[in-house]
């Protein structure tokens, strides 16, 4: 009968649609599974084994984790690096994001050259971190670098120190470089957030006679909370994954005297080997990666929760 033909045509159309959907989703899903999900999952597995180079040896349970956290030698290095990451996060929050906030507030007043400033401030953001690091490494060269030449030229010879060579100045110098590299990003994110605040709010406040400072503090700041949340979380993730700048400027060992050692460098040394850490050790490396992931993940969630709770709905 015709009805069988009718049913088969209908079924074929449904089947074709399913096939089409599968075709659309498969390449992306496959890439994501093979190159992201499987490695992420394996990281946990790897941390539970002892490794000899690329070869997996025996199952050791949580021994790698306890080594990292409680072994006196490892533990000291770990917490030293961790503390440096904390310093980086706090400092960047103040100098980089604080500066960005001020700039965003100024740009929101629509000064002459408004577009120009945006482009200029964003320029270092698009540069490769490696380029920025090398550029400033050259500038900070104790003898031939422009920074010290400039200091000497203006009569501040005593300030012309080997910035990257002294334990007390190396990390601050690197953080300044990071701020130079990235400040344009939070600036423009904050600026976009300010622009989203309906002008009515600000005009109403102005009509009520509020000062510019009050408007900034009591209207703009609370209403740009979502952008602040995002920047805080991104800065946090960036600070605890900090790697390129210290690696390029002062090498894998966090010299001088470990003053620029970071979790990212420690992880790299542990996993792939170095002069101080010896050969490559995937077991301890993976354990460290898992710990870092948990820490960053948990903190990001908590921070997002806390920060969003102070956000106000605009509509």
């Amino acid at each position: 009968m015709q009805s069988t033909d009718y049913e088969s045509v209908r079924r074929a159309r449904t089947r074709n649609l399913k096939l089409w959907l599968a075709l659309l989703l498969t390449p992306a899903a496959l890439l994501l599974i093979v190159f992201v999900f499987i490695p992420m999952g394996s990281a946990v597995l790897y941390s539970l084994y002892e490794w000899d180079g690329l070869a997996r040896k025996g199952y050791v349970g949580l021994a790698n984790f306890s080594d990292i956290l409680f072994d006196p030698v490892r533990n000291k290095v770990l917490f030293h690096a961790f503390w440096n990451n904390v310093k980086v996060f706090v400092t960047l929050m103040i100098i980089q994001n604080g500066y960005a906030l001020v700039l965003a507030m100024l740009l929101a007043r629509n000064p002459r050259g408004y577009r120009f400033y945006q482009v200029v401030f964003f320029l270092p953001v698009i540069l490769s971190t490696v380029i920025v690091s090398f550029q400033w490494k050259l500038f900070l060269n104790p003898v031939f670098g422009l920074v010290n030449k400039a200091l000497i030229a203006v009569g501040l010879e005593s300030w012309a120190v080997p910035w990257l060579g002294l334990p007390e100045t190396a990390l601050p110098a690197m953080m300044l470089v990071n701020a130079w590299h990235w400040f344009g990003f939070p600036t423009l994110v904050f600026l976009a957030a300010i622009h989203r605040i309906p002008t009515d709010f600000i005009e109403a406040a102005r009509l009520d006679g509020a000062s510019e400072w009050r408007i900034a503090r009591e209207i703009i700041w609370p209403l740009m909370a979502p952008a602040v949340t995002i920047i805080v979380v991104l800065t946090f993730i960036g600070s605890f994954n900090w790697f390129e700048i210290p690696y390029v400027m002062n090498g894998l060992e966090g010299s001088p005297q470990g003053s620029t050692d970071m979790l990212g460098l420690l992880f790299y040394r542990t996993a792939f080997g170095s002069i101080s850490a010896g050969g490559s050790d995937f077991g301890h490396g993976s354990a460290l990666a898992v710990l870092m992931f948990i820490f960053i993940f948990v903190f990001s969630i908590l921070a997002t929760k806390y920060l969003t709770s102070r956000e106000v709905e605009m509509n």
């Binding site: 093979v34 490396g285 990666a289």
Partner: peptide, 15 residues
């Protein structure tokens, strides 16, 4: 979106 692939560099390398 929430998985920092850098931290899975070891298994990724082996794979």
């Amino acid at each position: 979106l929430m998985l920092p692939l850098r931290l899975a560099i070891i298994p990724l390398f082996v794979q």
